[in-house]
Design a protein around this nucleic acid. Structure first.
Length: 409
RNA sequence: GCGACCGUAGCUCAAUUGGUUAGAGCGCCGGUUUGUGGUACCGGAGGUUGCGGGUUCAAUCCCCGUCGGUCGCCCCA
């Protein structure tokens, strides 16, 4: 077995799976335009420093989970593991602050060196929406409303719940963190080994520990609300009011946190229980500290990213059969059939004609492929030169006949 | 990095407790039937049972290793 195989954690897609993927991306592009989010393009690879800087002290992520390599000049480059850092880099480098506030969207492949499992790949794909240069809760509201409408239009909103939390401002966050450390340190004996590790590196993460023993401790851990400054409280209040006014349902998730210090205020995830251990389909929050931490001007920002593969798994099977099959009844009718094909396509109707096979075979194949209608071309001499057989509601026979009755294409 | 489970035809899966020539459906190719159309039937091609070793008279089946896959843990930007 020496034939090449795809790298672990990558995927080939065709047919229904690719159609679902495509449907998610198309829907996203349509909806983000509705909200006035322009397309942004950033490189698939960046200087390693771009991500190392944004991911900061979490050494595991930087050293073990990134696809990094040296180019021929000896520079360390990394395949992007997220969109936000690259967009922040572009914002700083190109002086986009002159355009603030910016509403940007993109989608594409991302790379993380992880063990593949359900809904987790090494090359995966995300949708991304960001608002840069806006400190107002209205930006958070709009970003979340965009996500909610996307999910609704994908028809998956009944299986997804919006979990919402606040991390407060920098002051709030620091105080809460200290409170949590104190609480868990007092119960070291019952804390799981993993969480004892987290206590030093990333105490907020203990809140979403899966260990049963930890859950008991988490239940009476101090709540962030007790540490909230007046400003942070007002921000969260405004966010919730804005969501209600936008018709977005949510539940408060007090244990929902972000590991990095540059996250402030809003944290949210759209979660489903239909995808095994990987329940988050869209996750986001406010990262007011990031652009400043990367050496740019202090810039408030909020955004989210959503897994295309995960969304595609939730989406109902997309409608197929919007293609009309043109069948030539014999070689003598091929030219006429080709003319029909041309007329349909120029009229904006998806149509195709088989490369080979007799009429009977072509009809069988067309039905099996789920064509919406079959146009059988019998020749100018026949009683009915062109016969239309409707196969699904997606086709309108009278419209097809009208198009085909037009002059030579 | 750790753990559990799984690798049989192009695809989805069978194969008694370890037993003789490893089967079926789908797909593909050919034929018959049908004859304005989603038919039925007949036939054919296609396998070193992931790979390597071991136990045994005998291994798809048991054991070890290896590679690959799935799911979970860790991590989750």
């Amino acid at each position: 077995m020496t034939t090449p195989q795809k790298p672990r954690g990558t995927q080939d897609m065709m047919g229904e799976q690719a159609a679902r993927f495509d449907h998610v991306v198309e829907t996203f592009n349509r909806v983000r335009k509705l909200y006035g989010f322009g397309r942004v393009e950033v490189p698939v690879f960046e200087s390693t420093a771009v991500f190392a800087r944004s991911l900061g002290e979490t050494t595991d992520v930087v050293s073990k989970e990134m696809y990094s390599f040296e180019d021929r000049g000896g520079d360390s480059l990394t395949l992007r593991p997220e969109f936000t850092a690259g967009i922040a880099r572009a914002y700083i480098e190109n002086g986009w602050q002159q355009h603030a506030p910016m509403k940007l969207a993109t989608w594409g492949p991302l790379f993380r060196y992880e063990r593949p499992q359900k809904g987790r790949f090494r090359q995966f794909h995300q949708l991304d929406a960001e608002v840069l240069g806006a400190a107002e809760p209205a930006a958070d509201v709009e970003v979340i409303a965009l996500a909610a409408q996307l999910l609704a239009e994908l028809g998956v909103d009944d299986r997804v719940v919006l979990q919402l939390n606040t991390l407060g401002d920098a002051e709030t966050r620091a105080a809460w963190r200290d409170g949590l450390v104190a609480h868990f340190s007092a119960h070291l004996d019952v804390l799981s080994p993993e969480s004892r590790e987290r206590l030093a590196k990333n105490p907020l993460r203990i809140l979403d520990s899966k260990a049963e023993g930890d859950k008991v401790l988490v239940a009476d851990a101090p709540r962030i609300d007790a540490y909230m400054t007046a400003e942070a409280g007002a921000f969260f209040e405004a966010l919730q009011k804005g969501l209600q006014a936008s018709g977005v349902d949510f539940v408060r998730a007090e244990a929902l946190v972000r590991g990095f210090d540059y996250y402030r205020h809003t944290a949210f995830e759209f979660v489903t229980d239909a995808l095994g251990a990987q329940g988050t389909v869209i996750g986001g929050g406010r990262y007011d500290g990031l652009i400043g931490a990367m050496g740019g001007p202090e810039t408030p920002a909020v955004g989210w990213a959503g897994g295309i593969e995960r969304l595609a798994m939730l989406v109902a099977e997309p409608l197929t059969g919007s293609v009309v099959a043109v069948v030539s009844n014999g070689p003598e009718q091929d030219d006429l059939a080709r003319d029909c094909l041309l007329k349909l396509r120029r009229a904006g109707i998806a149509a195709e004609m088989a490369y080979r096979g007799n009429a009977k075979r072509q009809i069988e194949v067309a039905k099996k492929r789920g064509s919406s209608a079959i146009v059988i071309v019998r020749g100018a001499d026949a009683d009915q030169p062109v016969h239309v057989q409707q196969l699904s509601d997606a086709a309108d026979p009278s419209q097809l006949l009208a198009v085909l009755a037009g002059g030579a294409a």
